[in-house]
Structures are given as structure tokens and as C-alpha cells.
């Protein structure tokens, strides 16, 4: 990992604006998508793919790589533009997102999309798959870690806690779960639908090294990743990232309606203008840096 400098943080914050705009563009192309959750996870995924993960888009199956498993598979809308941007495939491949026979749909398929480690979509499965991948990495004495992004709503699934138990039992210090704690599931606030709190205490009680951070604070994200215990250590880590569903778009933030939604070109342009206004060092207007694609241009 690079050194954490003010320039590096700014580079990643800029990248996060770019990615959010790409997500909005892709929503228009796709005719709708899980916007709220894609925006809540954006900073986490940017930190991972542009700073943390040891992956090589030219060799997607390189044995020594870090692995990232998107347990909240409906976050494909938030991940696929990143994989294109870092070079796993050209962005044009996503032009028919959701179309007949497209490799890209609501949930990612690892047999169709380079850089996707595992086909996901059914909630609660990803952490268990990550446990298996972490066991394999340890058997292979590969240095890589396994990162798994888990939605908070899917923590209602009992299987996640089976996985949590087993990761501790198998002493998987090379496993990192990141919880996108945006507080909303499809039907409303997680605490009203099926409460999760006290969540950090739950992970700690399951034997995980647990840290809580603001999942939109790039400096805090990088700090958590740099502070990870060695992969050879014997405790898995949970990064509980407090996030905002729909982050960056005022009318979407914290509104469960935007769990899934669509945007027309006009609305997308307004959304992108708002996102651009969040670009560091360019308050209140487009800086031109990292200009996004069509709908946002």
C-alpha cells in the first residue's frame, strides 16, 4: 500500500466523485439499479481498489493476489465501474448493462466478468465463501488477504454468523469483513425491520478484531486498512463502516425509496452536478478534474 499522505487522500476522494458519477451514468444505461447501496459503498470500494488491494487486472487469476468478495451482490452497480476503471475490462463492455445476454446484470457473475471473484446476489453467502477462500490462501501459503464487503441488512441471515464463528475458529487473520452499515434495508431502517445493534459488540463477541469508522472518511478508511493485523495473525478483522445510503445525493440520502431506482438523463445530470460540487478543492462547482462519462458530461 502507498503511504497515506494528504495528496493520496485527495486523489482517492477525487476518484470517489468520479466513481459516483459513473454509477449514476450506469444507472441510466441500465434502466435502474440499487443506487442507495452503490453510493453508500463507493468510498470503501475506492479505498480498496485504488489503494489497498494487491490485484493485477492483466492477470485477474494471479495466485498471490488479494481477493475481494462482494457479499452484497446487488452492489454490482457500485463495483463494476470500478473494475472497468482499474483495467479489468473496457467500460464499453457495460454498454448493454442488464440487456439480454449481457455479462452485466443486477448481480455479478464471476464466470462472465473479469475481476469478480465469486458470483453473488443471494444475501448472506459472501462471508462463508470468503472463509473458504481464506482457508485456501492459508493452505497455499499465499500472502494475500480476503476482503468481503457485507451489507448490514444481510446480517439478519444466520449464515453470516455461522461464517463469523468459523473464521474465528479457523484463526483466519487473513480475512477482513467490511460492513457497509448504511442503516437501511429494503423495507426501512434495519433497527425497525430486524434490529442489529449492538453490532460492534456482536462481532467482538464472535471473536473478531473489530473497528468502527466513518465509511465516507477516506483518511479513516485508509487508517483502518493500514492498521490491519498481519495476515498471518490469528484473528479475523471486522471494519464496521458507518455509511449513508445514497451518499452524496441529497434527495437520496437516508431515503429507503432509493434502495432501488432509476434516473432519466435530466435527473442524472442534476445528480452529477451535485456530486461534482463535493469534489475536494472545488466547492460549489465542477472543477473539470476526472470528468465523468456521457450523462454527467
Amino acid at each position: 500500500m502507498r503511504e497515506v499522505t494528504a495528496e493520496e487522500i485527495r486523489r482517492l476522494e477525487n476518484k470517489a466523485v468520479d466513481i459516483r458519477k459513473k454509477i449514476v451514468d450506469l444507472t441510466v444505461v441500465a434502466g435502474g439499479g440499487h443506487l442507495g447501496g452503490a453510493l453508500s459503498m463507493a468510498d470503501i470500494v475506492v479505498a480498496l481498489y485504488y489503494h489497498v488491494l494487491n490485484v493485477d487486472p492483466k492477470r485477474p487469476r494471479w495466485a498471490e493476489r488479494d481477493r475481494f468478495i462482494l457479499s452484497k451482490g446487488h452492489g454490482a452497480l457500485g463495483l463494476c465501474p470500478v473494475l472497468a476503471d482499474v483495467g479489468f475490462y473496457p467500460e464499453e463492455l457495460m454498454a448493454d448493462f442488464n440487456g439480454l445476454d449481457s455479462p452485466f446484470g443486477m448481480h455479478p457473475d464471476h464466470n462472465k466478468i473479469p475481476g469478480i471473484e465469486m458470483s453473488t446476489g443471494s444475501l448472506g453467502h459472501g462471508l462463508s465463501v470468503a472463509v473458504g477462500a481464506a482457508l485456501a490462501a492459508r493452505l497455499d501459503r499465499a500472502g494475500g488477504r480476503v476482503f468481503c464487503l457485507v451489507g448490514d441488512g444481510e446480517l439478519n441471515e444466520g449464515m453470516v454468523w455461522e461464517a463469523a464463528m468459523s473464521a474465528k475458529q479457523f484463526k483466519l487473520g487473513n480475512l477482513v469483513a467490511i460492513v457497509d452499515r448504511n442503516g437501511l434495508c429494503l423495507d426501512g431502517p434495519t433497527e425497525e425491520v430486524m434490529g442489529l445493534e449492538p453490532l460492534a459488540e456482536k462481532w467482538r463477541a464472535f471473536g473478531w478484531n473489530t473497528v468502527e469508522i466513518d465509511g465516507h472518511d477516506m483518511k479513516a478508511l485508509l487508517g483502518a486498512f493500514h492498521a490491519l493485523p498481519p495476515a498471518a495473525s490469528d484473528r479475523p478483522t471486522c471494519i464496521l463502516a458507518r455509511t449513508v445510503k445514497g451518499k452524496g445525493v441529497s434527495f437520496m440520502e437516508n431515503d429507503p425509496v432509493w434502495h432501488y431506482g432509476g434516473l432519466d438523463d435530466e435527473k442524472a445530470a442534476a445528480v452529477c452536478a451535485e456530486l461534482e460540487s463535493h469534489r475536494p478543492g472545488a466547492p460549489g462547482g465542477a472543477s473539470g478534474a476526472g470528468k465523468g462519462a456521457t450523462g454527467c458530461a
Binding site: 481477493r67 465463501v129 473458504g132 482457508l135 497455499d140 455461522e162 468459523s166 475458529q169
Partner: peptide, 26 residues
């Protein structure tokens, strides 16, 4: 013993972890 994993009474986790081992070539 190093390639044997007892998952306890948790078949769902075991089956998905098997998938995780398989994507890594096991």
C-alpha cells in the same frame, strides 16, 4: 489434518466455504 475442516453443525456455511475453496483451486 491440515486439509480437513470441521465446520460444526452449520451446513450452509460449510457448503459456501467449499465454494470459496473451489474458486481458489482446491
Amino acid at each position: 489434518p491440515e486439509r480437513f475442516f470441521n465446520f460444526g453443525i452449520a451446513e450452509q456455511n460449510m457448503m459456501a466455504a467449499a465454494a470459496g475453496l473451489a474458486i481458489s483451486g482446491k
